[in-house]
């Protein structure tokens, strides 16, 4: 019995370390320029999420969380990268953003602000909460906020999409600690993740074929005050 307690204690501690790595991965993901680097980081982040789910599943004796971990591994660490490299291979390998909309130091300071903010919001809820919640909830919220910011400032289609999935990771990272019985949602979300990326990948490919680039910043035709060409809306 005592030995089990030691193991559990150790797992809680490892979960804390994973929390730190998870947060770090979101910050680094924000600063990466190459699509491939972003993808690699996203995969690592997803694995961290899955490991955390396994640990929490063990601690709470929750099969649902184990399933969540499995789904995360299968969908986000295996399927999504494969799908992306298959549909958008050359784009992932070669494309990078030379200039961000906001320069990196400023972005980093904003990420810092997000961290302060999320801890500030969550702090009152952590009184009396156990250590796993104290790690996962603020870190998850923070990764979510950083992800939203990353999504907003990215100009390339693939990193934008991966930022979107990172937001998902953040939400679920917090979610696995605070609810242990929402397997249905997570299951659906994992499945949907694949669908979402499938759709987004196909979209991005058609986009690349049509517009000639996956740079989203070139998509600025839909604006107020821009004249619409004659017959433009005509379908083929």
């Amino acid at each position: 019995m005592n030995q089990l307690m030691v193991v559990n204690h150790l797992l809680v501690n490892i979960n804390s370390v994973i929390g730190a790595l998870f947060l770090l991965s979101a910050v680094v993901l924000m600063t990466q320029r190459q699509a491939q680097a972003v993808l690699r980081l996203f995969v690592r982040q997803s694995i961290l999420l899955a490991v955390s789910a396994f640990i929490l599943g063990w601690l709470h004796h929750s099969a649902e969380l184990m399933i969540v971990g499995l789904i995360t591994i299968v969908a986000k660490a295996v399927l999504i990268p494969q799908l992306l490299t298959r549909t958008l291979g050359p784009d992932i390998r070669s494309r990078r953003e030379l200039d961000f909309i906001v320069n990196t130091p400023v972005s980093l300071l904003i990420a810092l602000g997000m961290t302060v903010l999320s801890y500030f919001f969550v702090a009152p809820l952590l009184n009396g909460a156990n250590q796993t919640i104290a790690v996962n909830l603020p870190v998850g919220l923070d990764v979510l906020l950083i992800g939203v910011y990353t999504l907003a400032v990215r100009r390339e289609a693939v990193p934008q999409m991966l930022a979107m999935m990172a937001i998902d990771n953040g939400a679920f990272y917090a979610g696995i600690a605070i609810t242990t019985s929402s397997a249905i949602v997570e299951l659906a979300a994992g499945l949907e993740g694949v669908m979402v990326v499938l759709i987004a990948a196909i979209l991005a490919r058609t986009l690349a074929q049509r517009v000639g680039s996956t740079e989203v910043s070139e998509l600025t035709h839909l604006k107020e005050g821009e004249r619409i060409g004659e017959k433009e809306g005509e379908s083929e």
């Binding site: 998850g140 919220l141 979510l144 939203v148 999504l151 289609a157 934008q160 999409m161 979107m164 937001i167 998902d168 953040g170 939400a171 679920f172 917090a174 979610g175 949602v185 979300a189 979402v196 759709i199 987004a200 979209l203 991005a204 058609t206 986009l207 049509r210 517009v211 989203v216 998509l219 035709h221 839909l222 433009e232 809306g233 379908s235």
Partner: peptide, 24 residues
């Protein structure tokens, strides 16, 4: 058309982001 695809892209990315924020 490029415009329609642009609209679809924005639609997908922004609203899925919103839904993910809501799930938390």
């Amino acid at each position: 058309t490029p415009r329609a695809l642009e609209a679809a892209w924005k639609y997908a990315v922004i609203t899925i982001m919103g839904a993910t924020v809501a799930v938390l």
